[in-house]
């Protein structure tokens, strides 16, 4: 294990307005989190993704020397990049963070059984803490970018995209499966609302 310094985990429980807070008490989740191993602080926030929420995390990382962060909020598909960037700004490797989704996969789907939703949220936080205790910092991978675009489909949407890309100076390949570009739009009689011809 590369990281042998004592673990100092910060747990953040988002209320997401009433999306989470309207079903379970984020405070109860935070209180439970404080009992978990290596957790040095646990806080709630009305909107963790907002500036005040993120600033709090950054400040804590510095002031409390946090080296691991657990975010109990929404989907990783939504805000994992947000919080990874937040850690990076505070000087912490972004991969020392684990997010657990107590909104889409808990309060939104168990709204009628808040007691059970609370138990689930606590266990989700416990699992995230357990994982984050074993994560290692990772160096982000940077890949080169080929400055060329491929647009598949030469209808009005594809042409519009290709023209914009071209005007930005980006070489663009426009692939059309039919003999001519134009798509459905080319077949239309005058088009709404300007009533001019469509080609």
């Amino acid at each position: 294990m590369p990281n042998r310094e004592p673990l100092r985990i910060g747990v953040y429980v988002c209320s997401c307005g009433s999306n989470i807070g309207g079903v379970i008490d984020p405070g109860a989740v935070a209180e439970y989190a404080r009992t978990l191993p290596d957790v040095v602080l646990a806080r709630t926030s009305l909107y963790l993704c907002g500036d005040p929420g993120q600033n709090r995390i950054k400040q804590d990382i510095v002031e409390h020397r946090l080296n691991r962060v657990v975010i109990a909020a929404c989907s990783v598909r939504m805000h994992e990049p947000t919080f990874r960037a937040c850690l990076a700004e505070a000087g912490l490797n972004p991969f020392l963070m684990e997010m657990t989704n107590i909104r889409e996969q808990d309060t939104w789907v168990h709204a009628h059984v808040p007691d059970q939703a609370l138990i689930k949220a606590k266990e989700m936080v416990a699992a995230a803490v357990a994982k984050v205790r074993h994560v290692a910092p990772l160096a982000p991978l940077r890949v080169p970018v080929t400055k060329r675009a491929l647009v598949i489909g030469g209808g009005v949407a594809g042409i519009s995209a290709a023209l914009d890309l071209g005007d930005m100076g980006i070489p663009t390949v426009l692939v059309e499966k039919e003999l001519s570009i134009g798509g459905t739009m080319a077949q239309l009689n005058k088009t709404f609302p300007t009533m001019d011809c469509s080609i």
Partner: peptide, 24 residues
Amino acid sequence: VAQGSAAAARAARVLNAETWEIEP
């Protein structure tokens, strides 16, 4: 048409970068 322009802008975000960060 609007979505075509939007897609061009989203794509240009990548294409105008020298390098792009991907998950390690």
